[in-house]
Nucleic acid binder design. Structure first.
Lengths: 237, 237
DNA sequence: CTCGTTATGTACGCCATCGAACAGAATGTG
DNA sequence: CACATTCTGTTCGATGGCGTACATAACGAG
């Protein structure tokens, strides 16, 4: 039987000094996040922040037309709900579960209290926020300049980094929503990767077989984000 | 003769309570920022933060190939150098002067000292950062889904909001760098706008004649960013 | 005023991606 | 096991933006 997740699996929670952790741990509530669940709707006031352990959350922007694009992705290295401590309380984007799993949630007010003690929590959250900003910037650039093929590679790698194995549960339709492209475009790109033996997939399941090759085929955006995230957070982790 | 800028012209500085302002004002140094000046190079450690009064600064990402794209834009409503107080000290993007003018610069350490007093400065900087995040997200979406025509409108509006009159000094070539498209694409889009009587231009100078029409022709991205920025910062301004 | 430089205009073929439409395959539900 | 549903594969024409090449026009330094 699978064990239940522990707070330590989230790297931000793990990085907290003992004192902070002690203050928070009793208020952390384990929640299950099924694939596709909408955690925040655009403009909504946030009540909780979420620290994923083994789930992945996409921050998605949905336009008036219904078209969408992923702005950034959050896994066990991060937290969903930065608007709470940044002061805005809400954001114009949607948070949706991209890979089912668990997260620990914390009442917004509790996080704010801890944040306002101006200790390690503040430093950590701000550094993480900067990493998130890097990801968003890179997404903007990537959307402008890179092909679907390259972007799919980037997206697979970002997902892979946040998953325990080399297996991604996701339909091509959903990936297309994330990338903001047509489903057919993803089918084609995925087909090429499969032909190259880099991935293997069947109806909603993708297995990455050759990760080094995937990194070669990806645009520089993945490496930039990875490197910068490591730089910003590795002191703490 | 034109008067020299005052710190109050930067909205963030203006919004500071008297006490904070008193601590900082003697350390603010007025600097002139000529068009095209590179204020930060990607990855460089930041020494100063800049509070523009009448200049505009673009945060630009330049790829390995040399292609570029604007991530966000900063005028008298903001500050250049958030990485300093976010904790990362540097970012992978370049800051370049998009419209010449003045700014007050402040030694990074002074800002950090003020920031670490955990007063109004912290709150203000974080809220501003959230506004910047909104702009970056929207840029990502816009790059994915909207036409050059629409994006040019958005870009003109964002610039206009940060300038004293309806006159923009900027070549089509530079606009193309910002938008991450070909110069010819901008020429064509600008030509259409001129034919419609919305703008008028000649060799590096653009005059906006019909701003309401420009807003109609723009994608929703401009309005989203504007509205969210107002929401996040109007309590303070 | 002239000339070199820089900015803008235009044209052509190319290609990635789009939109739409439909066929086939895998899945799980009753 | 059969069927409805959902996912994936493929095709077609349309098109927006690209790369390239070159022409014209405005400016400003001498």
């Amino acid at each position: 039987m699978p064990e239940l997740p522990r707070p330590q699996q989230n790297l931000l929670l793990a990085a907290l000094p003992h004192e902070s952790k002690k203050r928070l741990v009793d208020h952390l509530e384990l929640v299950s996040l099924p694939l596709g669940k909408v955690m925040y709707e655009s403009g909504e006031t946030m009540r909780y922040v979420y620290f994923p352990t083994d789930s992945i959350i996409s921050l998605l922007y949905v336009m008036e037309s219904g078209a969408s694009a992923e702005i950034s992705v959050v896994g066990n290295e991060g937290v969903v709900g930065i608007a709470l401590f940044m002061g805005g309380e809400s954001t114009p984007s949607r948070a949706i579960v991209q890979s089912g799993g668990y997260a620990f949630r914390l009442l917004g007010q509790r996080l704010k209290d801890e944040f306002n003690r101006h200790g390690e929590m503040l430093v950590l959250m701000l550094r993480y926020t900067q990493a998130l900003i890097t990801q968003m910037s890179q997404t903007a650039v990537c959307n402008r300049h890179h092909s679907i093929d390259q972007q799919l590679c980037r997206w697979l790698l970002l997902s892979l980094d946040r998953l325990p194995d080399n297996q991604i549960t996701m339909t091509q339709e959903l990936i297309a929503n994330m990338l903001g492209v047509r489903r057919e475009g993803v089918t084609e790109a995925a087909g090429k990767l499969q032909k190259l033996g880099v991935i293997e997939y069947r109806r909603g399941h993708i297995t990455v077989l050759d990760r080094p090759r995937l990194e070669q085929l990806s645009c520089e955006c993945y490496a930039v984000v990875k490197k910068e995230t490591d730089r910003l957070l590795s002191d703490h982790f």
